[in-house]
Design a protein around this nucleic acid. Structure first.
Lengths: 109, 109
DNA sequence: TAATTATATCGTAATATTGCAATGAAACAA
DNA sequence: TTGTTTCATTGCAATATTACGATATAATTA
């Protein structure tokens, strides 16, 4: 199928998996790391920094933007991208809570 | 293509994206949450708990096992699964470091 | 031994993802 | 106005993912 049965899962499970999925490609991880390093940058910088074609970078930026993790300001002919702090911190809270589950009692049989 | 160009990214970026990808499906998130809740369980429990067919659950368990996040002990005709603490904590360290990047200077133009 | 139980694997259909060439759109420069 | 720059969108080919029926495997039970 290729289609996840989201309706049988909780909102929280679906939210976690949506955030995780966007981090599930190294190009998007690289874009975010570059944005953190430089505070902000334009699409052209990313095309040079990462070795992917411009439409591919643009597509990855779109997915990050759709989740609200980044935002872009048009500046003349270029677009300046940066992390959206609010959404990033919200996402971090959800993800860290998932990762922080207590492992101490967990063991096999 | 459907094929990520992993060779142009750092090991860290590829590792983060591999961990994230496995969390990128709500069924695997649900399996892990259930394992944390019960400390351990068998495949059949998960088939009842989550509304997916047995081969589908088995496939998701395989992906979690391949990354080392869970391990399974054969117990008669059933298999007891639990979180692999060591790998989980290693993964958590990598992911939290990625999520914890400093957002304070980041802003658009 | 034969049947049962629990899980894994195989095969396949439906859908999603990735990557890029070609093209479009919008701002700017000459 | 015409060209240039920068980015987004479209269309498509290659590959990956998801889900499950059918079947295999392995331990247990009758």
């Amino acid at each position: 199928m290729g289609l996840a049965k989201t309706e049988i899962f909780t909102d929280e499970q679906n939210e976690i998996s949506l955030f995780a999925k966007v981090f599930g490609h190294p190009a998007r991880v690289a874009i975010l790391q570059y944005l953190f390093k430089l505070d902000n940058c334009i699409c052209g910088d990313l095309v040079n920094e990462i070795g992917l074609a411009q439409p591919t970078i643009s597509q990855h930026l779109k997915e990050l933007k759709q989740l609200g993790l980044i935002k872009g300001n048009v500046e003349g002919t270029s677009v300046c991208y940066c992390i959206d702090k609010t959404t990033w911190l919200d996402m971090k809270q959800v993800m860290v809570q998932f990762l922080d589950q207590d492992v101490s009692n967990n063991d096999c049989c």
